[in-house]
């Protein structure tokens, strides 16, 4: 009897304690370093239709800090969307580790720690604008009154308060994408993942949305990961640009963008901006 009790005391709790301790240490490290997302040697290999293995992404290692605006920049096939989808737990990496605020991407997803904006606005055409923004709040069983208030606040943030009762198809592409951003922010996530959100928009609308997005970012203080293939877009928006190169998809450079904030459209005419654009362009490998 004594032996069994001793055994329990000595072996099992110890095992558990060590695991807990490891978890706590990694959490403390995260908080101390202000790291929101940690990518360690992340790789992704697909099986193609003809049975061959295709390397979409190989050994990506980097840290993303809280409140940072990061761009994943690269041409088609460089794995930038793959990387974003790995962070979002929409696909699982075949190698390496991802930690989001000290937990796995799956736990982060289940805790609804990120909002996502897709290439198309993905609004449900049977719901009004306000009902589209309320959707995530409905799913999380937020009370009706609070749901409406929060959705209206988000709509106000993206400057579309007057369009609450419109249906998506009554809005322009740019307005639809702004509703998409409002919806992604509705659950007040810590991280905003954006997958080429403005690629389908015209140049004028896109430039306006760039300025709007920076304003929203400043007000909400989110960590933003922004996937794009547009060099100017990434330089204008980001704190840091992760340049990804194709065949196989890999991280070929991380470039700091030390342009002053708040940024306005005028910054695009400065020599610093132009210099950064060419620096980014020259950092691509094998394109």
């Amino acid at each position: 009897m004594i032996f069994i009790v001793l055994f329990c005391f000595i072996s099992f709790p110890e095992q558990r304690n060590i695991n807990e301790l490891k978890g706590t240490i990694s959490m403390i490290e995260h908080e101390r370093n202000d790291i929101e997302i940690m990518l360690d040697n992340v790789g992704m290999v697909y099986d193609s239709a003809d049975g061959k293995e295709v390397t979409a992404l190989t050994s990506v290692t980097m840290d993303i800090h809280k409140g940072e605006f990061i761009s994943l920049l690269g041409p088609s096939g460089c794995g930038k969307t793959t990387l974003l989808r790995i962070i979002a737990d929409l696909i699982h990496p075949t190698s390496g580790n991802v930690l989001i605020g000290g937990v796995s991407p799956k736990d982060a997803r289940l805790k609804r720690r990120y909002g996502m904006v897709f290439q198309s606005a993905t609004l449900y055409d049977w719901r009004t604008v306000i009902k589209n923004i309320e959707l995530p709040l409905e799913i999380t069983h937020c009370p009706k009154k609070e749901r409406h208030e929060r959705a209206m606040k988000m709509l106000d943030l993206v400057g579309l308060s007057d369009f609450a009762d419109h249906y998506p198809r009554q809005l322009s592409g740019g307005m639809q994408q702004r509703v998409g951003i409002a919806r992604a922010l509705a659950l007040q996530p810590e991280i905003l993942l954006m997958d080429e959100p403005f690629s389908a928009l015209d140049e004028f609308t896109r430039e306006k949305l760039h300025v709007d997005l920076l304003k929203i970012w400043r007000k909400t203080n989110k960590t933003i990961i922004f996937v794009t293939h547009n060099i100017q877009e990434s330089v204008f928006l980001s704190d840091r640009i992760c340049v990804l190169s194709p065949h196989p998809g890999r991280l070929s450079a991380i470039i700091d963008v030390d342009l002053p904030r708040p940024r306005t459209m005028d910054i695009k005419d400065t020599p610093e901006f132009t210099a950064l654009v060419s620096k980014v362009r020259n950092s691509f490998e094998g394109v």
Binding site: A88, D89, L90, R109, L110, K111, R112, Y114, G115, M116, F118, Q119, S120, T122, Y124, D125, L135, P136, I139, T140, L187
Partner: peptide
């Protein structure tokens, strides 16, 4: 379904019934 709408539901951690 509309493109990405299943992904959207997944990001909300929505169950199959939802």
């Amino acid at each position: 379904l509309p493109p990405f709408s299943e992904d959207l539901m997944k990001t909300y951690a929505a169950g199959r019934l939802t």
